[in-house]
Design a protein around this nucleic acid. Sequence first.
DNA 1: CGAAGGCTTGACGGTATTCAAGCATAGTGG
DNA 2: CCACTATGCTTGAATACCGTCAAGCCTTCG
Lengths: 250, 250
Amino acid sequence: MSGRLLTALRSDTVHQAFSTVSVPDQTLMVESVLKLHRHGFSAGKILKLEGDTAPATYCVLDGWLALSKSTEDGQRQIIDFVLPGDIVNPASADKRTSAVQIEALCYAKVSVVPTGDWASLLEEVPILEARESQIIASALSRMSERILRLGKGTAEMRVAYSLIELYLRLQAISKVCNDSFHIPLNQQQLGEFAGLSSVHVCRTTRRLSRKNILTAQGQMDITIHDLQGLAEVAGVDLEALKTEIIPAGR
Amino acid sequence: MSGRLLTALRSDTVHQAFSTVSVPDQTLMVESVLKLHRHGFSAGKILKLEGDTAPATYCVLDGWLALSKSTEDGQRQIIDFVLPGDIVNPASADKRTSAVQIEALCYAKVSVVPTGDWASLLEEVPILEARESQIIASALSRMSERILRLGKGTAEMRVAYSLIELYLRLQAISKVCNDSFHIPLNQQQLGEFAGLSSVHVCRTTRRLSRKNILTAQGQMDITIHDLQGLAEVAGVDLEALKTEIIPAGR
DNA sequence: CGAAGGCTTGACGGTATTCAAGCATAGTGG
DNA sequence: CCACTATGCTTGAATACCGTCAAGCCTTCG
């Protein structure tokens, strides 16, 4: 995919995500708030630690974030990915401390809006609230699907599901081209998402390759050759999954 | 506050969960809506299937619900428990279909409020919205903790964490007495929650018993003898977990 | 009493992890 | 241009963990 095309896609994403407001004044307001709090974060940068306070809402304009948690002995689990157009508030039940660590997986442009400012914005742009709740519902559905597979699925199922989920999410923001897409992850990180060791991710993706279902190269370009086959391995009904985890109007 | 209704609902829990509204008129409004849509469901009753529409918000007044998903070959994973005082909207990204199945684990009193009525109620009782979002944040935190352990934890860790989570949640609604509490589950169901076979749940709880950490009998009365020991096995900081997953003001 | 449901335990096998080594690639500095 | 390093992928071998199967037991309830 050409660099130029990517650039074009990026701006459309942001447009779709944060500017689908019919009132021009409100559109401007959202854009100015996002611009005011916008920062660039390079790959590996940790935006927030587990247990941190300083509550804020994170709006991803470009790039990927990972939400993760770690065990005492240093094992890490990625709870969710945050893609362009997503809105995340990592606050837990006390509305102050963060339940997860937030990290940039590649260079990412993010608006970090303090909770107070975000509340003001919501009052002025009511439709944002609906969008936020839709994004939360989508995240909950994704997490449910993953919990099912972490609890009951095989390695093949977990990897296949992870890739299908990312495929659908990226497709929704126009980042899939001919069933090929890029994910800024190495096998270690894909394993931290799917609940597998990096070694077993390697074995599993190779097995899927040998079945001519997909190819994965580098870090990481995925091409799906047999979407239906991948869906079967993942135990997924593609259309149903799409309505479940992809917010409409995107 | 209508003492009669409270008597009818027969629970301090309900008081805490749904009636902490300072304005008397609003309290009455909430109570009348809940009463209007209230139903009793006996153990095993399925309130909603995966993929069902007919969106509604579920307010649990008494008893336990389970949110679950199943694989094609019939394996079931419990995504979350819904306890008295909890508010759940099972809608996924499309705001219509449910991502999960909802089932009563014991006789349960639940107000099933259609989405439209719930929206009206939210407008009239603004504080409910804050409470709902707090409950969602709490659910997300719980799910994150569980995903971590499903992905990276051993059987002992998963069982220990599951019991600690339930201990804290039940304590918050005054259903723990001397570190003893009841959970309406058999080993099969606890396994469906923790991502283990029933056989392995048995082995694991026995091991925890032999370490004098807890006792479990029947279906299912838990007594925690060594809370700190259990927390260590679970890989949990008790205080931190509590602020993370227990909504304040309960 | 018999049947049903659930718990417990052992034996066995499969799946995933860990450890380790070899290889490929990209970036760095002499 | 070429070591040299760092990072990550790949594969094999050994091990650990957990699931499945099966049998025996207990309790409850009709």
